[in-house]
Amino acid sequence: MTDSAISTKNIWPNYSSTNTQSTTSSSSNLGKDEFLKILITQLKNQDPTQPLQDKEFIAQMAQFTSVEQLTNMNTEMKLMRQSLGIASGLIGKNVTWTAVDSTGASTVKSGIVDSIILKAGQQYVKVGSEDIALDSISQISNPEAAK
């Protein structure tokens, strides 16, 4: 038996690189646009003798709506988390965070929040000369009263 008799060309001609389209995208997650493209492609290429049943079509449209609503909800949650109004409640509070220095050593620090700043779309609390990302804060408390 020769090597030419056993080839992927003879076994899987439909998987040839010329028969497939590129499936790479900039994101590894499927979003609502990709879901809609899949649904439209499915409708274009369905078997005319066995069209998509109404129940299946309604179920897929419900899935599309769910994907869209989850995407919208995710966006709203990000906006809510980044709201300056909510973060401004931290001003005057004592916060604790873990700082990592250039050698990789971590130390727990705490201090009173002086202000809230926004850099590159992310909020930071200003404690003295340090800017701490909100997601780095591990504890928030009222400052101790002077005795």
Rank of each mutant, 00 (worst) to 15 (best):
D114P: 01
I117F: 00
E56G: 07
G85P: 00
Q60C: 05
K37L: 11
V125L: 04
G121H: 01
K55P: 02
I38T: 13
D47W: 09
V127W: 00
Q139F: 04
L52T: 13
N142S: 08
N29C: 04
I116H: 03
V113D: 05
A105I: 01
Q63N: 14
D47S: 13
V95A: 05
S106N: 03
L84K: 10
S115Q: 11
S22T: 12
T2G: 12
G128N: 05
F35W: 04
Q60V: 04
A87T: 08
V113L: 05
T103G: 03
E130D: 06
N74P: 09
I137W: 03
S22D: 15
I11Y: 08
D47I: 08
F57K: 15
L90Q: 06
D131C: 01
M77Y: 07
A59K: 11
D101C: 00
S102N: 05
K55N: 13
K32Q: 11
S106C: 02
A105R: 02
Y15K: 11
M73W: 05
I11Q: 09
L30D: 08
S88A: 12
Q60A: 08
V100W: 01
Q42C: 09
S129W: 02
A59S: 09
D131W: 01
T107A: 07
I117M: 04
S25W: 00
Q53F: 03
G128T: 01
K9A: 14
Q21H: 11
W97N: 04
I132C: 02
A87Q: 06
S25Q: 07
K109H: 05
F64E: 07
G104H: 00
F57Q: 12
N74T: 15
Y15Q: 13
Q42H: 12
A133R: 09
L79V: 06
S106V: 04
T20A: 12
T2K: 10
T2M: 06
T96N: 01
N29A: 11
I11V: 15
